[in-house]
Simulated scan of single mutants.
Amino acid sequence: MTDLSLTCRRTIKASPKQVYNAWLDPAMMTRFMSPRPDMHVAEARSDAREGGRFFVLMVGDKEYPHEGTYKELTPFSRIVFTWEAPWSAPDTQVELVLNPVADGTEVVLTHVKFMSEESRDNHEKGWNGILGKLDALLS
């Protein structure tokens, strides 16, 4: 395990409230929580409360299950959750900070702890793809 991390930033043309709610709503999650155009979400569940769990099943050439626990939920400004998958490092965590800006919401996504640089780089592409889909969905 390494201390590798990544940070992605994107301005989404929607309010912080809309962005925050989309991240926690399973129906919305099915529409954006897959990183590539050739992938989709077959199943999404969310118990949107601190200590609650979520599950996302991304499907492309194979199935990619992800799940985690919500650690912090600060309405319309911050979401912190664990990121668990068969290939993830232990104690991997994602933080979303939602900053209101003139054009909507700046999303700052920070993901910490990766097994390798390759894993970090793949996740960076993935998160940027997910943020792009969310932007297209909410704009």
Rank of each mutant, 00 (worst) to 15 (best):
I130Q: 00
G132E: 01
V112C: 08
G132P: 03
T69P: 06
T7R: 04
L4M: 07
L109Y: 12
M39C: 03
V107L: 03
T110G: 08
K62G: 06
H123T: 01
P26H: 13
E118A: 12
A44G: 08
E67W: 11
A14F: 06
P35H: 01
R45L: 09
M39N: 08
D103N: 13
T69R: 00
D91L: 14
T7C: 02
T7I: 04
E67M: 14
R31N: 13
M28L: 09
P26W: 03
R78P: 03
F114T: 01
T69W: 08
L96E: 05
G51K: 10
R120L: 08
R36D: 11
R49Q: 12
E118M: 12
E63R: 06
A44L: 04
A102R: 10
A14M: 03
N128P: 08
P37Y: 06
V97E: 11
E50S: 02
R9I: 07
V108D: 04
R10I: 06
E117N: 06
P75W: 01
T30G: 10
I12R: 00
Y70H: 00
E124P: 12
T74N: 15
S119W: 12
T105I: 02
D121R: 02
W127L: 07
T2P: 06
A102P: 07
E72W: 03
E106C: 00
P86Q: 09
F76D: 11
R45S: 14
D121F: 09
M115H: 14
F54K: 05
L131C: 01
T30K: 09
K125R: 14
M1T: 15
